[in-house]
Design a protein around this nucleic acid. Sequence first.
DNA 1: CATCCGCTGTAACGTATGTTTCACCACGAG
DNA 2: CTCGTGGTGAAACATACGTTACAGCGGATG
Lengths: 287, 287
Amino acid sequence: MSDSDDTAAVRPLNAQVREALDRLSSSERKVGRAILANYPIAGLGTVAELADRAGVSPPTVVRFVSRLGFSGYPAFQKQLVREVHERLGSPLEQYGRDDLLPAHGDLARAGRVFAASIAATIGELPPSEFERTVGLLSDARRVRLIGGRFSRLLAEYLGAHLMLLRGDVQVIGGDEFTRLSVVEDTRRGDVIVVFDYRRYDPRVVRLAQRIAERGADLVLFTDQWLSPAAEHAATVLPANVEAPSPFDSLVGALAVVETLVAAVTDRLGEAGRQRLAAMEETRGTPG
Amino acid sequence: MSDSDDTAAVRPLNAQVREALDRLSSSERKVGRAILANYPIAGLGTVAELADRAGVSPPTVVRFVSRLGFSGYPAFQKQLVREVHERLGSPLEQYGRDDLLPAHGDLARAGRVFAASIAATIGELPPSEFERTVGLLSDARRVRLIGGRFSRLLAEYLGAHLMLLRGDVQVIGGDEFTRLSVVEDTRRGDVIVVFDYRRYDPRVVRLAQRIAERGADLVLFTDQWLSPAAEHAATVLPANVEAPSPFDSLVGALAVVETLVAAVTDRLGEAGRQRLAAMEETRGTPG
DNA sequence: CATCCGCTGTAACGTATGTTTCACCACGAG
DNA sequence: CTCGTGGTGAAACATACGTTACAGCGGATG
């Protein structure tokens, strides 16, 4: 199939038309003007409509698009639609302005609460704490992660990503024996990442304390009221847990984790990328 | 002259589609989702293309637009084009808000992206799909959950909350044997919750298909481009996965999950509260 | 278990659409 | 003034598109 002539034009269509104007005949130029005059809607209708708008005959329109290098009007239109799609961009652009939200309905309300929570969480995050944490996670000899009832999932999430970027990463499970043995072989230079949101898990807090006492650096993810473990932490990354429901929300916390992952990825740069590529290689197609 | 039925709809078409979803039949709903999934480009092509994208036949597409009150597909498309033109119209749209927030820096930028992502995700969520999902999760005889590499954590998170609110909830692990046996004992009235974000896990998709064929209702959490499993789903809950990093983000997805948990909690009301209290009782203070 | 109703895809249909052909016209050169 | 050339639109054409009719299927209902 020779769709190459259709996709050859990667440049914006209106610019393409503008530059081609002087290569065209008088009537064809009218078509070009009509398109540029109200772009892109003029090109989204039928040939007859466009011809009418330009004050020329349908064949002239066809000659026009073929002069631009397209195989026919449908090809031209397809390109135009693709371009429109890109210009409208992702839904993100539309919701960037908060006054666009319809504002009625429980869902919309929930959306606003979440968005505000995120903004508050990231906005309040001390850049210095964040940078120090990035450094710790990137350079530590060994990283181990632990969490509570629900926040354990965040630990696994962060752990999974870190494993992609560096070695010696371990997510600590829930059983007592594992936890105790972890304390024993903790040394200076280790980093322990603790997730502890209210109601703060006493076991997690105690574990954090012991590990900190043995000289490891403690990175603490917690809520805006700070877990008791903050006392022993090297860096603290608080997140807003307010939610449009009786339960606490981990959305803000997840946002912090993902931002951190992005920063660590950036920091480890080439090394991380190589490691990642190697792992993809090894894995091949999953069995 | 009754061209009023074409111009009657002054409301945004995507909102119109979203609210009409529950008035539609199952296949027609697929068409609606296909349009919402990448709006508005999906509606700018031919009937055949849209039908193909939605996995239905052309007549279903025609029935869909006529159900929305249009005299035919051309009328529908014309309305869509007008809307596109208006949205592209104001250049404000494009450059509006980039520099408004004074605090620039990576963290602030990340915060804005996340907040916008959340707003887009929740805002685009069709209320009817949401409500149906709440109903399914509340009333199903049995609920089972499954996820991919990372999204498995979301499955566990939702599962953990559901277990607090109702019985017969099971999170399916990763090993092949468990998965196969799960397919076998699936019956009508079961609900399977699938998390599948790009790159879509073929094993998860296949499993979803088999389970749907056995008569279970499939609830699908996916990204804005829809996993292939959407074809067999009873309800689809898309989330925006765009992130300020090369990785995809699960923040939007988590927000959807938490919103859903809140709604189910609300729905199960007294029954759920009693169950919750009983469990607290049984557990006592953790040893 | 039989019956009905609604949903859905296959296939046939008519039409609107893009395209091609061709005659006409304007303009410039000889 | 005549001839030639490039540009243009009217009309004929073929295709692809949206639409309609119909039959098969599955799920509800008695």
